[in-house]
Computed example of a mutant assay.
Amino acid sequence: MTNSTKSHAMQQQSPAWSGELQALMEAYHQAGGDPASFQAPEVATLAVSGDQVLVSHSIPGVHLQSQPIENGVRVSVVVDEGTQVKHPVHLCFGVLPSEGIQKIEADYQIGDHAQVQFLAHCSFPNAIRVEHRMNARIHIGKNASMTYTEEHYHGQNGGIEVYPVSEVKIEEGGQLTSHFNITRGRVGKLVMDYHIEAGASSLTELATKAFGSQDDHIRVQESIRLNGENAHSLTKTRIAVKDKAVSEVTTFTEGNAPRARGHMDCTEIVRDEAIAHNNPIVKVTHAQAQVTHEAAIGTVNRRELETLMARGLDEDEAVDLIIRAMIRG
């Protein structure tokens, strides 16, 4: 049975799936996803558990293909030229056992003038010794638009290492909006590494939100090269660490063309014995380009903390509320 046929058969079942797919959908829900989306025939979907593709459903204009590799899956996503995808494409990646390795090699080809949104949920609810590697190659065509929202849940044990790497090329007039969020449960070890080459009149927006605790380690590395005239970019990073967690943020923006504009905005909150690093790097090679940055590292606002405590919250509850409000912003 092909992946597409298998998917259609699953969509005709009741929501009470059985076996590993049921377990993966429960993990998907923990990560913030809606399992019902995987039963909608008008929605393109892909669900991968470990090295097994459990659901793969393409729709007109959106083509999903997959093949097994050692400890994982190679995925191809093609959005046809001019396609306006009405419903977000739903992706689910997860490892359900407490130990395991998952490698995803993903290739995204967004055709000229196409428009598509992706909702990706990555869930590792029982992780004690789990490694997840995501290597993505993304090509966004002329005047095309891609929005990629990625929600993570790593469980409560902190026994996971996650390595997302993205190599992106944006053609003239293309747009990329990326949101990466891990704000519930433990982080474990997270090492993000994004590299973006931006063409003329393109727009790049990267937003990263993470909340680390205990001995979590968060490392965010983002590099944007504004190579085309009138290319614009914004990176927005919101990270909080407490206990003995560590965060390291390195953002690099390079302005290489007339009227290229880039801005980097990073805020980190530190509590207890946690440590936060921030390294904004600016490079401008054209006299008419401009790149700016702002960074702030510190603790929660004392006045806000006292106000919440006066309303009945204890200090830990008040700090958590302030941090989560900052991350949402």
Rank of each mutant, 00 (worst) to 15 (best):
M1A: 12
N3P: 08
T5A: 03
T5V: 07
K6F: 00
S7G: 10
S7D: 06
M10E: 01
W17S: 01
G19D: 10
L21P: 12
Q30M: 15
G33R: 06
A36H: 12
S37N: 06
V43R: 06
L46K: 06
S49K: 11
Q52W: 00
V53E: 00
I59E: 00
P60E: 05
V62F: 00
L64G: 01
L64D: 02
I69S: 04
N71P: 13
V77D: 00
V85H: 03
K86S: 09
H87A: 03
P88H: 04
G94Y: 08
S98Q: 15
E99W: 09
K103A: 11
K103Q: 15
E105L: 12
Q109D: 12
G111V: 12
G111D: 07
D112H: 11
F118E: 01
L119D: 05
L119S: 04
A120P: 02
A120S: 07
A120N: 07
C122S: 13
S123N: 15
F124W: 11
V130H: 02
V130C: 08
M134T: 15
G141W: 07
N143R: 15
A144E: 05
S145K: 14
Y148P: 04
E150I: 14
E151Y: 15
H152D: 03
H152R: 10
Y153E: 09
Q156Y: 14
V165K: 10
K169W: 08
G173T: 13
G173N: 06
G173W: 07
L176A: 05
S178T: 11
S178K: 13
F180M: 12
R184V: 08
R184Q: 15
R186H: 13
G188R: 09
G188E: 06
K189T: 14
L190G: 02
D193R: 14
Y194P: 02
G199D: 08
S202D: 10
L206P: 05
A207S: 10
G212W: 04
G212D: 09
D216V: 13
H217C: 06
R219M: 14
E222R: 04
E222P: 01
E222I: 07
S223M: 09
S223N: 13
G228L: 02
G228S: 07
E229S: 11
S233D: 02
K236F: 05
V241N: 03
V241H: 05
K242I: 07
K242W: 02
K244G: 00
A245N: 12
S247E: 05
S247C: 13
S247G: 08
V249W: 09
T251D: 10
F252W: 11
F252H: 14
T253D: 03
T253I: 13
A260Q: 07
R261Y: 15
G262T: 09
M264G: 07
I269R: 08
V270P: 11
A274R: 05
A274L: 03
A274E: 11
I275T: 14
I281Y: 06
I281E: 05
V282W: 00
V284I: 14
A287S: 11
E294G: 15
T299S: 14
T299G: 13
V300R: 02
N301Q: 06
N301T: 07
R302L: 11
R303G: 04
L308Q: 08
E317Q: 15
E317W: 05
E317C: 03
A318Q: 10
A318S: 08
L321G: 02
A325D: 03
M326N: 09
G329P: 04
